[in-house]
Nucleic acid binder design. Structure first.
Lengths: 226, 226
DNA sequence: CGAGCACTTGAAAGATTTCAAGTCCAGTGG
DNA sequence: CCACTGGACTTGAAATCTTTCAAGTGCTCG
């Protein structure tokens, strides 16, 4: 669901920054706001719109019958949502914080893409890049320990989050969301963050986490090869 | 990396069956064989070719520095490989069994796609479908128990594997591969298969697993909603 | 000031892994 | 033809990691 263009190397994964693609679409878009914790669309709904996150943070959610929840992805300003949709949405999208979205009708996007080869190509790349991200997450969930997951997550946020000061992260999501993203429980997330605070790697207060020892986190993260 | 066309509902995920897309490409393809356990391409290599699996089974592998391994996906006859590649391959692809592949130069595929809007659209769908599969795997790895993973895996194989007789699975991959796909150890895989054999849900002998009680497996699998 | 929610932390329980032996074949060489 | 070796697979028992269960703490909001 992430965008493309001007590819940026992000710890192995190519993180997309849309631009030209959207210039084309821009005239067909409308701007909407979604409040904290509200749904943007629900898994299984007929896919009516694609979105670009203008501001705030969105979570991509999959639920199991019994309520277990997996957050497949967090989307930040600049990321794209729903451009990879087929007939219906594959997941629920919810606003983590108050969010501003630019919304484009899928019919229009598809119509343009079937005229404009550049756009068609971009959309293909968008999906490919999202897939690449997903593969990195499969390694994280399948093979990393809890500490490695937390370290990887913090480093990723340090790169993606808009930061007022370097290494100061204003995390938009709560501990429960982090847990459901990393395949852990909220208690494990709290405990490990607590350890990192006590050993001086992190500063934690209120919604803000400060990375005091980035090297330590990097070593702890055990990123995949390449 | 999976293909598209004539979408088939597969326990929630849309599983692709290429057809027309490839008719176009067919004249540019060549057929190659790869022996059991040989590499088809390596993560990080410049992406020269796309493939369609004609026969056999391929695994998509990501490695960590210390050797931990995640098999992101198994590909079977009919599935596509590498069509979602960007400049270089995102993962290593290896032959699980002896494999026959139809190989297409990426330059040709891209050139055709930038002429033919139908193909471009198909390739976009191919990537979207792979992404959908990946999301289902994220739920499996992030939120399912070991038993649920095994049950899900067996049910998936029952749908994807060419079967001589219904519910008789000639698994092409070994226990280690299954473990690395499900985020478990080989011992856990063996033990859980052992339980299922003893309680009559499965018959196991040599490389063949027979599903004796499909209902039991389905209940055990706890598939996501939708 | 009190309630509710997010977050912490400890202790016990539980699931999975790790460590250790085996078993069972398939292929090889005597 | 048969014993032998190696690899894949099994299984048990102990060790570990993470979760579950329980109890707080500290804000924020009304």
């Amino acid at each position: 669901m992430l965008a493309t263009m001007e590819r940026t190397e992000t710890r192995g994964a190519v993180r997309p920054q849309p631009r030209e693609v959207l210039d084309l679409l821009e005239q067909f878009g409308s701007t909407i706001s979604v409040q904290h914790d509200r749904e943007i669309h629900i898994e299984g709904d007929s896919a009516e719109y694609c979105y670009r996150i203008v501001a705030g943070c969105v979570r991509i959610v999959k639920l199991m019958e019994d309520g277990r929840r997996q957050i497949c992805e967090f989307l930040m300003a600049g990321d794209l949502l729903g451009f990879d949709a087929l007939d219906c949405y594959d997941f629920t999208a919810e606003a983590v914080s108050d969010v501003v979205l630019r919304r484009y009708p899928r019919r229009t996007v598809d119509a343009l893409a079937s005229t404009n080869l550049t756009l068609a190509r971009r959309l293909r790349d968008v999906a490919s890049i999202s897939l690449r991200l997903a593969h990195a997450r499969l390694v994280l969930l399948g093979r990393k320990t809890a500490s490695e997951r937390i370290a990887s997550f913090l480093l990723e946020m340090a790169e993606r989050l808009p930061q007022s000061r370097p290494n100061v992260l204003a995390l938009p999501m709560g501990r429960t969301d982090i847990a459901d993203h990393l395949g852990l429980t909220i208690e494990t997330v709290c405990r490990l963050l607590g350890h990192l605070r006590r050993d001086g790697t992190l500063g934690i207060d209120r919604g803000t986490i400060t990375i005091r020892n980035s090297r330590a986190l990097q070593q702890m993260a055990s990123e995949p090869r390449h």
